[in-house]
Simulated assay, not measured.
Amino acid sequence: MSRKQTLWLAVAVVLAVIVAYQTVENSAQRSAQFVADADVPTVAPGEDVLAGVAVVPLRLRGHDYRRDAFGDAWTDDNDAPGGRNGCDTRNDILDRDLVDKTYVAISRCPTAVATGILHDPYTSLIVPFTRGNQTGAAVQIEHIVPLAYAWDQGARFWTDQMRVRFANDPANLVAVQGEVNQDKGDKEPALWMPPNAAFHCQYAMQFIAVLRGYRLPVDAPSVPALTRAAETCPTR
C-alpha cells in the first residue's frame, strides 16, 4: 500500500469513528425510560422486538475491559427522579425502586435512603434494606446491560463522557438483591436471565431498549433468549 493510500485509510477510519460517536450521542438522548415492575410492556403479534438493533455473530471479549473507563464512582449528573440534587445515582435509584423508606442526610445528599424494602424484580423476593457497609450490600444497583458487555460490543470506542453517562443512565439501572446481581455478573442474555420468569418480559424489553438507544449490537446467541422473553409480554 502506498503512502498516499495509507493516509487516506487513516482519514477514513477517523471519520468513521466521529460519525459513529455522533450517532450514539444523538441516539442516547432518546434512550428509553426505565420499565417499572408495574409497567409491563406490550408487544404486537409478529412484532420484531429487535428491530433497529444490529446483530453480530458473537460477543468478542477483548480482555481489556476496565471498570474505571466508565467513571470511578456514581455521579449526580443523571436523569433519575430528583437527579442533580446532591445525591448520586446509586442513592437516586434506591429512592426510585424501594418502598416504605426512611431517610438520612449524608454528605451532600439530604435525602439518602436509610431503610426501605425492595420487591426484587429478579427473584420476586422481599429484601429489607438498611444503610451500611455490610447490610447495604443486600441491595445492589445493577446495570441491565452490563458495562463489560457494552464495552465488548463497542463502548470501548466511546468517549469517557459517553461511558460515564451510560454507567449512570437510570434507564439501564435497577435495584436488585445483591446475591442475584453477583450471580449475573457481566453475562449476556444467552447465558443469564432473571430467575423470576415473570420478569423476563420487562428485562428483555429494557435490555433491547438500552441497546437500541445507545446503538449497541446484540450477540446472535442472545437473540433467541430475548425473543422468547419478549413472547411472554402481553399482546396489544
Rank of each mutant, 00 (worst) to 15 (best):
L7G: 05
L7N: 08
L9P: 08
V13N: 02
V19I: 14
V19N: 09
Y21A: 05
T23K: 09
E25D: 15
N26V: 10
S27W: 10
A28G: 15
R30D: 15
S31L: 06
A32E: 14
Q33L: 10
Q33H: 12
D37T: 12
V40S: 13
V40W: 12
P41T: 00
V43H: 08
D48K: 10
V49M: 10
V49I: 15
R59T: 05
L60R: 15
R61M: 08
G62V: 09
Y65S: 00
A69S: 15
G71L: 02
D72P: 13
D77K: 12
D77C: 02
D79M: 08
A80T: 08
G82E: 06
G83R: 03
G86K: 12
G86P: 09
C87N: 07
T89M: 06
T89V: 10
R90T: 06
N91S: 09
N91R: 14
R96C: 00
R96K: 08
L98G: 02
D100A: 05
T102D: 01
V104G: 04
V104T: 13
A105G: 08
I106M: 13
R108M: 07
C109S: 04
C109K: 05
A114G: 04
G116M: 05
H119D: 14
H119Y: 15
H119G: 10
T123K: 01
P128G: 00
F129R: 02
G132W: 07
N133A: 12
N133L: 11
G136Q: 03
I141Q: 00
I141M: 04
P146Y: 01
A148G: 09
A148R: 00
A150Y: 06
D152F: 01
T159M: 04
D160P: 15
R163Q: 09
R163Y: 03
D169S: 11
P170S: 06
L173M: 10
L173I: 08
N181L: 01
D183V: 15
K184Y: 00
K187T: 07
E188T: 12
L191E: 14
L191G: 12
M193Y: 05
P194A: 00
P195R: 06
F199S: 08
H200D: 03
H200Y: 11
Q202F: 07
Y203R: 07
Y203A: 00
M205S: 01
Q206R: 11
F207D: 03
I208N: 04
G213W: 11
V218L: 05
A220Q: 15
S222T: 11
S222H: 07
A229Q: 06
T232A: 01
P234W: 12
